[in-house]
């Protein structure tokens, strides 16, 4: 171990370093560490709403309750499926659109801006817009499809509980592909054209160029964006809940179990801790295997 003699320049540098990062460390501890630790603490209690009644320690009861609930496991697998489908879907769509937008054509900047719309529009308005265009009888899309005899105008696609999972997944892919597109496009533009020229001299066709130049260059961007989207979609609550009460993902399960009626904060805290542990596990594996950090 390295030791620092008193008063040396090196020691002063170290102290200065600590001083400089201290505000960040303090803020992160207050805003992230404290709530996370407090959440774990709460998960061992039956939390009372009444200030006159103290919280009651229940040990691991909240955890056992959740882990032995078949509905929890059903939601867990639904969430895994939802995350996989939406991440893969939005990655493929985002990649395809990014490659198209990387070419030069007239009006490209306008189209590029338009593509971002689903991502930047406030969620509530896009949910309502979707509900509106699919409205039975009066929805514009329904009227259009009905005029082509492609569907019965009385069909209610969005509000049919059997369509919940498909509608929610489809909406999520549509809403989030622009984010993927934006990240990939940024990287695409930094790939030196000399690489493509070299590949052409070797006689590579477009597919070969895509597989041997574009994809390897994009690897880390795609992997990082997939990780981010995976984390976000695993915890996705707002749009899923706004679109349907039947989608049955984990955040909805937690909401229904813990916050319907009198809030059971202890149960909610333990569910959050379980999800946190699962996520940390998945992320660690992913970071080591895929991102190779």
């Amino acid at each position: 171990m390295k030791s620092y003699p008193v008063g040396t320049l090196e020691r002063k540098t170290v102290i200065l370093g600590w001083k400089l990062i201290a505000p960040t460390v303090i803020i992160i501890s207050l805003l992230i560490l404290y709530p996370a630790v407090y959440n774990i603490y709460l998960s061992f209690f039956k939390v009372s709403l009444n200030p006159a009644i103290p919280n009651q320690f229940v040990g691991l009861k909240n955890y056992f309750g959740i882990l032995s609930d078949p509905a929890f496991w059903r939601s867990f697998w639904v969430t895994i499926a939802f995350t996989l489908i939406t991440v893969i879907g939005s990655m493929l769509l985002g990649l395809g659109v990014a490659i198209m937008m990387n070419r030069n054509f007239y009006g490209r900047s306008a189209v590029r801006a338009l593509i971002l719309l689903p991502y930047v529009t406030p969620l509530i308005s896009s949910v309502f817009a979707w509900k509106y265009i699919f409205l039975p009888l009066n929805g514009p899309l329904v009227q259009f499809l009905a005029s082509l005899h492609l569907m019965n105008p009385g069909t209610d696609i969005i509000n049919n509980p059997n369509n919940a999972f498909i509608v929610v997944s489809f909406f999520n892919i549509w809403r989030n592909f622009p984010f993927v597109y934006l990240m990939i496009l940024a990287k695409l533009q930094s790939i030196p054209s000399s690489l493509y020229e070299a590949a052409e001299m070797d006689g590579a066709n477009w597919w070969r160029k895509f597989m041997s130049v574009t994809l390897p260059e994009l690897y880390f961007v795609i992997a990082s964006v997939a990780l981010l989207r995976g984390i976000w979609n695993f915890y996705k609550f707002d749009e899923v809940y706004l679109l349907s009460k039947f989608a049955g993902t984990l955040p909805i399960y937690i909401y229904d179990t813990a916050f319907a009626g009198i809030p059971h904060q202890g149960i909610a805290a333990s569910a959050a801790t379980i999800l946190f542990a699962v996520m940390i596990g998945l992320i660690t594996v992913y970071v080591k295997r895929v991102l190779k950090w």
Binding site: N159, N160, P161, N162, K245, F246, D256, A260, G261
Partner: peptide
């Protein structure tokens, strides 16, 4: 009853009855 209402048990039953 409040627990059933908060989980929309009756609303869901009606929704499913018509959907299926």
């Amino acid at each position: 009853m409040s627990k059933l209402s908060a989980n929309f048990v009756i609303g869901k039953a009606i929704n499913l009855m018509f959907a299926n």
